[in-house]
Design a protein around this nucleic acid. Sequence first.
DNA 1: GTATAACGAAACGATACAGTAGCGTTTCGT
DNA 2: ACGAAACGCTACTGTATCGTTTCGTTATAC
Lengths: 192, 192
Amino acid sequence: MATETSQDPRVERSKSAVLEAAVDLLLEGGVGAVTVEAIVERSGVARSTIYRHWESRRELLLATFDALTPPPDDPRVDGPLRDRLADLLQSRARRIGSVPWAAAIPTLLDATSRDPELAGVRERLVEQHRGAFRRTLERAVEEGELPATTDMSEAISQIAGPMFYRLLISREPLDDAFARRVVDLFLASRQR
Amino acid sequence: MATETSQDPRVERSKSAVLEAAVDLLLEGGVGAVTVEAIVERSGVARSTIYRHWESRRELLLATFDALTPPPDDPRVDGPLRDRLADLLQSRARRIGSVPWAAAIPTLLDATSRDPELAGVRERLVEQHRGAFRRTLERAVEEGELPATTDMSEAISQIAGPMFYRLLISREPLDDAFARRVVDLFLASRQR
DNA sequence: GTATAACGAAACGATACAGTAGCGTTTCGT
DNA sequence: ACGAAACGCTACTGTATCGTTTCGTTATAC
């Protein structure tokens, strides 16, 4: 009958302290660095408390990945397509080029490639990432800025691909000018 | 005075058996799967023998990454640029889309991103990969098929990026048609 | 044929980690 | 104020791995 939620505030405090430490460890040292002991040390939360709230290290790791989701940033919806796409790509590039994410993405890809449960986490992150591009592109199609035959999945690969290539493979800097040229290249072949 | 090389042939046999097993384990299960015990079990070579030939697990891991380098395939040099680029991209896509490599690349990126010594291995692999594209593009510039102002590094990002995006991020299939469209997109905005 | 080097099997100590249990203390809701 | 719950602390078990050594066997070179 009574309210099931909002129990002892200490529970929330402990949980968030643990997750915060776990996320930090994940971003700094990869999945392998997320040990219970390291979390205990960094968070100040006791080992026993952690196991009171999570069944196992695995559960905790899952929760850590969940806590990792970045807040979605709303892309601008005004101005010409070229500017909207460039803004979107630049904001994405700035985020994934930032220190914690640049280091975390390889770890994420690796961990999620071999673990079916973690694969869901990756799909969610990827879908969130692709959604922003898809919405911008679909709107452009509706407004006639892009042909109706545009293959969304292919377009996203062509726009976001070069950015990830520089981040993951060649490790070149991701500056705004590069993002703009990628957008221009994409548009040059599609637009009138 | 005597010949220093080519000692007991068993040495070579053991070494290659160990490396072969280590490479298999790396491709199958990532860096974490390359344990000395697993190598012992799979290769049939004894623990002691392994430590006779390598100082430590770390040395062995380095050697494993070195043994990983794929044989370079020579891109075709005839025909129009469109076909040459498409051929190159398709052959690359087929390789990195193949089961062992598709699974290995995330592990490689992760491991090499946090380990300065392994970083050299990644650079070597990336450079080999980029070299093939660079040579094809430079030749195209010489022959007037591309403008002399073409930024090689940028061009490679734009051509190879979408492929890696599909492989690593979106996990979509890498078919030849996709590769060709990527090339066409690139050329459409550059060529007369 | 024999000496020698490489070999395989097995054991060892050290380290790191996950997970469990007990106990006294602190904080919360009522 | 008081009981319940959450907490921190500590010690413990069990497992996995590494690095190293010993020892008896086997293949190779001469």
